[in-house]
């Protein structure tokens, strides 16, 4: 039986001249590939151009900003970066980056540890109410945050956590991001249990098994979890907007909003320069580790 996959441009072992049908199919494949490449390139450029343009514009003078759609600055200057970095507050953007980092690092570590423990519990043990509890993981995944936000705020207010990072850290450190629990459970289900059972037979406790056997195998999934949590936290705006009120604790996202509000309309170059810096950590992390992102979303499906 003739398979389409046999008709590849590289040809097969036999030297017979290609038939009319084969020639036609090859030509069709070439035309199809050309159209696809053309379309993808065009759309790709359209997608990425705003970002390229943002980077170019951040090196323009304010006068040039609104005069040319070209991304290339005529007289490149870093004045926007210098002025933007100073901000109109007593702090520099350096302070806001440190604040963002100080929100992100404990949150990412808390997420990775708690979600691993919880996912291990769900994937490897039987216990009362397990079905119900795992169903609640899925339900939380779909539950709109908007409905729990106000009482959460009141709760954190009553225990005196407002204007601190605790409301941003603690729920995540209690495996509150159901998506990650779900993702690790899916990953664990695909890992054979032989090694774990062998370790248990040799007298290891379940915790030792988790730390020495399971976690090393989970590493790719955990990297995905940390990367996603890093990006989402870096991008998070509403959380800090509600809980963080003093400027000295502002993360980058709030500081950017502040600079739009306080900078006069003519200082766009400063705002765009700081926007480039705000995007830089996520972009860098993404390009260094993109395969984990693609694997992560393909495995579990992701918001975004």
């Amino acid at each position: 039986m003739a398979m389409l996959s046999d008709i590849s441009p590289k040809g097969r072992g036999d030297r017979r001249p290609p038939t009319q049908i084969e020639l036609k199919l090859r030509r069709k494949a070439r035309v199809s590939a050309t159209i696809r490449y053309g379309l993808l390139t065009l759309i790709g450029l359209l997608m990425v151009y705003p970002l390229i343009w943002l980077i170019g514009a951040s090196f323009k003078t304010n006068a040039e900003m609104f005069t040319s759609p070209s991304f290339w600055p005529n007289e490149p200057t870093v004045q926007g970066y210098i002025d933007g970095w100073k901000t109109s507050t007593p702090y520099t953007f350096g302070k806001f980056f440190l604040n963002s980092l100080w929100i992100i690092i404990p949150k990412v570590i808390g997420t990775a540890i708690s979600c691993t423990l919880v996912a291990y519990g769900f994937a490897r043990f039987e216990f009362p109410f397990k079905k119900f509890l795992f169903a609640s993981v899925i339900a939380t995944l779909l539950l709109p945050n908007v409905v729990t936000r106000i009482p959460q705020y009141l709760l954190f207010r009553d225990i005196g956590w407002l204007d601190s990072f605790l409301p941003l850290w603690v729920p995540s450190a209690m495996a509150g991001d159901a998506f990650f629990v779900f993702m690790i459970v899916q990953f664990l289900r695909a890992i054979p249990r032989d090694m774990e059972e062998a370790a248990r037979v040799d007298g290891a406790t379940t915790l030792q098994t988790l730390v020495y056997i399971v976690v090393p195998m989970l590493t790719p999934a955990l990297i995905s979890v940390c990367l996603f949590q890093f990006m989402w936290t870096m991008n998070d705006f509403l959380g800090p907007l509600i809980y963080v009120s003093s400027v000295e604790k502002y993360p980058v996202s709030l500081a950017l909003k502040l600079s739009i509000d306080t900078t006069e309309a003519f200082a766009w170059n400063q705002i765009l320069a700081m926007s480039v810096l705000a995007l830089a950590p996520s972009l860098t992390v993404f390009f260094l580790a993109q395969k984990y992102f693609i694997e992560g979303i393909s495995a579990g499906g992701v918001k975004g």
Binding site: R124, F127, T140, T148, P151, L155, M174, A175, G176
Partner: peptide, 29 residues
């Protein structure tokens, strides 16, 4: 070797978080 509640210990952080930060706020709202 371990009790049948071992699994519950592992999911305990989730259960506490679920009650405190999701279930209670859900009802409260």
């Amino acid at each position: 070797g371990e009790s049948k509640y071992a699994g519950l210990w592992y999911v305990a952080p989730y259960v506490i978080g679920l009650l405190l930060f999701t279930a209670f706020p859900f009802v409260a709202s």
